[in-house]
């Protein structure tokens, strides 16, 4: 393997890992507020990117269509929290089952509304040549978005009332209520923020997977993101990042050496990080 290929594989791995990390952050955010694994996050992301794609195909400018898609993600996710997770609070298995059923309903609705196998979505074009390898602009964009999100999220959670309210709601909801934190709002907002992040991940994934309503791209990214979040115990940023990196590297390196077998490597890596990182 020459240096160019190594650079290309490294950047591809980092970009794939970034995608999984952003979903993992979304899942961990929703989990920290509610104790519920957001199992519908893949379909929320798919709905968001399809909504954006539909607006774009209707000649709505990208600067409007993309935020509108992000908004769709946030609203759908917040709706799932209000309608399904809040009534099942304290019963994580019931909440998970409700979210699985809702995910299927949403997916079938999307299939009815968006029946084509793929929809056009703009991706960052262009490429750099580094040591003989090709580094795509969309990969750099993905890495940049995730780095910015991570920095912003860290600053938000470590300082200020929002972060304190979220941390307290996650650790001791009864105590948070007693000192005046509106935990219901915190949960809804954390789900909404998770939905926006999932929507962003689905849009960034458009360069890797076709934008469609099928249980492909966005759902696959979401599942691996959930695995990374679980592998990091739903709260430890470095472990979540490491889990996402392992899954991303498994996908890219596996595909390089095994072709379509790379998907197996990525899924096996996802199972591995879940089993290694999560406890009852």
């Amino acid at each position: 393997m020459n240096g160019g290929i190594a650079v290309q594989l490294a950047v591809d791995s980092l970009a794939a890992a970034s995608l999984y990390a952003i979903v993992a952050t979304a899942v961990a955010l929703a989990y920290s507020g509610s104790g519920t694994v957001h199992l519908a996050i893949g379909q929320v992301g798919a709905a968001a990117v399809l909504a954006s794609a539909a607006l774009l195909s209707g000649n709505v400018p990208a600067w409007l269509a993309i935020p509108a898609g992000l908004l769709v993600g946030g609203v759908l996710s917040a709706g799932a929290e209000r309608g399904l997770v809040a009534p099942a609070l304290g019963r994580p298995l019931l909440a998970a089952a409700l979210l699985v059923a809702a995910a299927v309903v949403l997916q079938e609705l999307l299939l009815a509304l968006f029946p084509h196998p793929a929809y056009a979505f703009p991706i960052a074009g262009g490429a750099l040549h580094v040591l003989g390898g090709v580094v795509h602009a969309y990969d750099l964009l993905t890495i940049g978005v995730v780095a910015a999100t991570a920095a912003g999220g860290y600053a938000l959670l470590r300082s200020g009332r929002v972060g304190a309210a979220l941390r307290l709601t996650a650790a001791a909801p009864a105590m948070a209520e007693r000192i005046g934190v509106d935990t219901a709002t915190v949960r809804t907002v954390s789900f909404a923020a998770g939905g926006v992040l999932a929507a962003a991940a689905a849009m960034l994934a458009a360069a890797r997977f076709p934008v469609s309503a099928g249980a492909g791209g966005a759902v696959l990214v979401a599942l691996r993101g959930i695995a990374a979040a679980a592998g990091g115990g739903m709260r430890l940023p470095l472990r979540i990042a490491a889990a996402a990196a392992l899954i991303g590297a498994g996908e890219v390196v596996g595909q390089y050496f095994l072709g379509s077998g790379g998907e197996f490597v990525a899924d096996a890596a996802a199972v591995l990080v879940v089993v290694a990182g999560w406890r009852r």
């Binding site: 519920t36 694994v37 199992l39 994580p92 298995l93 909440a95 998970a96 699985v100 599942l223 691996r224 959930i226 695995a227 679980a230 899924d267 996802a270 199972v271 879940v274 089993v275 999560w278 406890r279 009852r280």
Partner: peptide, 13 residues
């Protein structure tokens, strides 16, 4: 070692 919601995800993976 997984609780039920994460077990769901693991089985799908």
């Amino acid at each position: 070692r997984l609780d039920a919601p994460v077990f769901l995800v693991m089985t799908l993976l």
